Amino acid sequence: MLKLNYTEVGLYMERTLTTPELLIAQRVVLAMRLGQSFHVEPGCACFLLRADLRELKVLETALQRELSSTVTLLPVDREFVEVSLTGSWIAEDRDAHEGMFLTLMSDRTEFLIYRLWQISAAHISSLA
């Protein structure tokens, strides 16, 4: 599973072995114990990858083979490609800008997306 954490300082992505259902159940219990509100809904998350990454072609090929409807790649401009994922949005309330997004796909696709995100994030942060 890919877990995307959206915070006020940006996006952090990680791969986990937990299923979305188990993680959501754990978060419900935690919210109840802490007396916090909790909101879960199906949704879509997007982020950018550099368009010049050689490994992007590998991801495109993997997505074509898997016929995955969970991931969509769209060119934004000459420099970036938008990755759109379907999954579940978890936050304190419906209008929160900070929260967690969970999505499940094949191990290979998860690995490729995670690796490409790491490479892109490292390049972008080195420019700052």
Rank of each mutant, 00 (worst) to 15 (best):
D107A: 15
H97K: 11
T86W: 01
G99S: 04
I90V: 15
E110Y: 12
F101W: 04
T86E: 08
F101A: 06
W89Y: 08
I90R: 00
E98M: 07
E82Y: 07
A91S: 12
S88N: 06
A96R: 06
H97N: 13
T103V: 14
R94I: 11
A96P: 03
T103C: 15
D93W: 09
D95W: 13
V83K: 06
M105V: 07
D107P: 09
F101N: 02
T109Q: 11
F101H: 04
M100E: 11
E82A: 15
M100A: 05
E82K: 15
M100K: 02
E98W: 04
I90P: 00
I90H: 00
E92T: 04
L102T: 08
D93M: 13
W89K: 03
F101R: 04
G87M: 06
E98I: 10
E110P: 05
F101Q: 02
E92D: 11
G99K: 00
A91H: 05
V83W: 10
M105D: 08
E82C: 15
H97C: 04
S106T: 15
F111K: 02
E92S: 11
D107R: 12
E98N: 08
A91V: 03
I90L: 12
A96Q: 05
A91F: 03
T109C: 15
D93K: 11
S88G: 01
D93V: 08
M105L: 14
G99F: 00
D95I: 05
L85I: 11
S106R: 10
S88F: 13
L104R: 10
G99T: 02
T86M: 10
G99E: 01
L104I: 08
G99C: 00
F101D: 02
F111Y: 14
T103M: 12
W89P: 06
G99N: 03
M100R: 00
D93C: 10
D93P: 02
I90C: 07
I90N: 00
L85M: 13
D107V: 15
E110Q: 13
E92H: 13
M105P: 01
T109L: 10
A91T: 01
W89H: 01
H97M: 07
E92W: 02
G99R: 00
E82M: 15
L102W: 03
R108T: 13
T109I: 15
F111M: 09
I90Y: 00
R108E: 12
F111H: 10
R108C: 07
F101G: 05
A91R: 00
T109S: 13
I90K: 00
G87E: 04
G99W: 04
S84V: 12
R94H: 14
F111G: 07
M100W: 00
S88E: 12
G87N: 01
T103I: 14
E110G: 13
